[in-house]
């Protein structure tokens, strides 16, 4: 359904996204993790055709078999909401403060599907029920400032579902919420994806939430896809040093996953931060922060290679070892 092949995004000379290759099928639940600055949000925006005007895209980004990498804004408008939809990080600011939330949710239905106001209202009501907003009748008429953060995030999810998209992208949907609410929103997204047989891309730096909501995972670092595979396998036995770093230097990474039931856990910190775009190292972009560096790391970019049927990573350690 969605296919990325060597998708890169350049700002001037700097590559903010490099050679991302992945496919998303109907019903896939894919997590994307990484620190801030890892390019995960940019990747999501590329999938919406909303990377900024100054970003130059190369490679293939095909949706329903159509290459959209250089498609016009008008073409993208046809896809948004109907094929791809997105829920953003800040529910407090993501709703138009001057509009009743019902009007906001109904707007794409009226525009894209030509529904009458009555039909749109009916669908909005059932969407509100589906996303777990009590008293939907009353809520439709409320303004965003009359709702809590969790309620607003549910409204935004309802808005994203308004035209039955095939792919829902959730960009850090729980970061701004408190732990309990976050957990319920995560479960809601996962349930919606399953019930609607809709693909879900769940972006977070909260590994626990990703573990809970997704089947597959992509780990991003500084615009590179450094590891990919089934969520449980990757989190239990990370292949890339960066993934290991994200999970923390725990003897049993499984603990991290099991943590889920309890409180939400912040990522353990890796010393330093993702360097800014213009100051990235030549070879492997993780070199400099990587605890296990080989001589070739600083000079040569590692190739993304499959380690088995479902998994792969971009690290010299893996290729070196195989060469031995």
């Amino acid at each position: 359904m969605i296919e990325l092949a060597n998708l890169s995004a350049h700002f001037g000379d700097a590559a903010a996204l490099r050679d991302v290759t992945l496919t998303i099928q109907r019903g896939d639940q894919l997590g994307i993790v990484g620190e801030s600055g890892s390019g995960k949000t940019l990747l999501a925006l590329c999938l919406m055709g909303m990377a900024s005007d100054s970003a130059h895209l190369t490679g293939r980004l095909s949706i329903d078999g159509r290459d959209m990498a250089r498609a016009s804004e008008r073409d993208w408008q046809q896809l948004r909401s109907r094929r791809v939809a997105m829920v953003f990080q800040e529910p407090m600011a993501a709703l138009n403060p001057l509009r009743r939330v019902g009007d906001t949710v109904m707007e794409p239905m009226l525009l894209h599907e030509g529904l009458s106001r009555g039909e749109a209202r009916k669908r909005a009501l059932s969407l509100f029920e589906e996303v777990g907003i009590p008293n939907p009748d009353q809520r439709l008429r409320q303004f965003p400032h009359e709702m809590s953060g969790g309620q607003r995030q549910r409204v935004l999810i309802a808005l994203a579902l308004a035209c039955n998209p095939a792919l829902l992208i959730a960009d850090e949907p729980t970061t701004a919420l408190d732990a309990n609410v976050a957990l319920r929103i995560t479960d809601l997204l996962q349930r919606l994806a399953r019930e609607r047989e809709m693909a879900l891309v769940f972006i977070s730096h909260d590994l626990a939430a990703v573990a809970r909501a997704t089947d597959d995972i992509v780990v991003m670092y500084a615009g590179d896809m450094v590891e990919r595979g089934p969520t449980a396998e990757v989190l239990n036995a990370p292949a890339h040093p960066y993934t290991k770093g994200l999970l923390g230097a725990r003897p049993d990474p499984g603990v991290a996953v099991r943590d889920v039931k309890g409180k939400r856990r912040r990522l353990p910190t890796i010393p330093g931060a993702v360097p800014p775009l213009h100051a990235l190292p030549q070879g492997c972009r993780f070199s400099g922060r990587c605890p296990v560096e080989l001589p070739c790391c600083a000079a040569q970019r590692p190739v993304f290679s499959q380690t088995d049927q479902a998994r792969g990573a971009a690290c010299h350690l893996l290729t070196e070892r195989r060469d031995d």
């Binding site: 909303m50 408008q77 046809q78 948004r80 997105m86 953003f88 138009n96 794409p108 035209c163």
Partner: peptide, 17 residues
């Protein structure tokens, strides 16, 4: 610059709207 404008764009609304 505010977030809800991005939400509106993500809903597939035309730039004009």
């Amino acid at each position: 610059r505010q977030d809800f404008v991005r939400t509106a764009r993500a809903s597939g609304l035309s730039q004009r709207r």
